[in-house]
């Protein structure tokens, strides 16, 4: 009775004591917070770095007209170096374009099969395989382009060089397909099953269900998947460097060799003097690439998120 009285009226004992767990908790909260915002810090940091390195060129030697509209990329010309990326943009765009022509049917077909037709173990096995395929290093793909596709294209089409838009486009398409498949399959999975049931109960065949109901309902997610593939295509470096032939050229056909923006940076950066005009011009290409891939990926992400919400 007496004790109960003091517990109610007096201060509780040890009310202001912090034990070790309190400090561990605070520390971990801080560490997790740093981890959480690291992506933002890195993005801003990288963009700042790339911009600073390329800034000198942007201020002095940069001419908008020359940079985007000249097809002459001749940074090592002794009399008059020119920095035109038109041919490089054409190279990247043509390879990415062909890659999408290859990847879209492959990835949508795979996604529809995995998501709508396969069941049980087949489905699980296929999903694991697709993930594994996405994890193959790009240099391996480049190697396949160089040593298998190259002689194959020369033989099949009777052309002098097998390292060209066709080669790189196919390689890049196969590289981009797995991630596109994953995203597209997620989009199909997000379509409620009652839509399928409703359509089937109305007498639709499996294909009609997919074609008339599931695909339209998933179209935003599928578009997001394609855009992510395009972003991958613009950013890919090693495989493209190895399979395109690396020749500066505006392609007239798929059998022409080209050179990509990314591959140019990778191949030349090591041989330039730090801070030179050439070095800065390469970083300006970097800024350009960064902006393009950023916009593409952001758009894709917003589209995909949009469907998740609704």
């Amino acid at each position: 009775m007496q004790q109960a009285q003091t517990a109610i009226s007096g201060r509780l004992p040890d009310i202001d004591q912090r034990d070790l767990a309190w400090y561990v908790d605070k520390l971990l909260q801080f560490l997790v917070f740093i981890g959480g915002i690291s992506a933002i810090i890195l993005i801003i940091g990288i963009f700042t770095f790339v911009t600073i390195e390329g800034f000198g060129f942007l201020l002095e030697g940069f001419s908008f007209k020359e940079f985007f509209l000249s097809e002459w990329w001749e940074p090592t010309d002794e009399d008059e170096p020119t920095y035109g990326i038109l041919a490089l943009v054409a190279g990247t765009a043509s390879v990415t374009g062909l890659a999408m022509i290859v990847a879209i049917p492959f990835s949508l077909g795979a996604a529809v099969y995995i998501g709508e037709f396969s069941t049980g173990k087949t489905r699980e096995a296929l999903k694991v395989m697709v993930e594994l395929l996405a994890a193959i290093p790009s240099v391996v793909w480049g190697f396949i382009g160089l040593s298998i596709m190259n002689p194959l294209i020369i033989k099949l089409f009777d052309v002098p060089v097998g390292l060209n838009v066709l080669n790189a486009g196919i390689i890049l398409g196969l590289m981009a397909a797995p991630i596109m498949t994953s995203i597209a399959e997620d989009a199909l999975k997000a379509v409620p099953d009652r839509y399928r049931e409703a359509a089937e109960a109305l007498g639709a065949t499996r294909w009609q269900v997919i074609y008339k109901t599931v695909l339209p309902a998933a179209k935003n997610g599928l578009l997001g998947a394609v855009l992510l593939g395009v972003g991958r295509g613009f950013g890919e470096t090693m495989a493209v460097l190895m399979a395109t032939g690396h020749a500066i050229n505006i392609p007239g056909s798929v059998f022409d060799s080209v050179r990509a923006l990314t591959a140019t940076i990778a191949a030349e950066l090591g041989e330039t003097a730090v801070g030179s005009e050439h070095y800065q011009a390469l970083f300006t290409i970097g800024i350009f690439l960064f902006l393009i891939t950023f916009v593409i990926n952001l758009t894709a992400d917003l589209i995909v998120r949009g469907i998740r919400k609704s």
Binding site: Y195, E197, A198, A199, A201, L202, T213
Partner: peptide, 30 residues
């Protein structure tokens, strides 16, 4: 044929399941 069975025998489900299309397209789907 399954499709013919489902034409002859329509079904209404527990939870209303209109398709994500216009009212008009829903009516005309079948």
């Amino acid at each position: 044929e399954l499709v013919q069975v489902r034409k002859q025998v329509g079904m209404v489900f527990q939870r209303p399941n209109p398709l994500p299309a216009s009212i008009r397209d829903n009516i005309l789907y079948g």
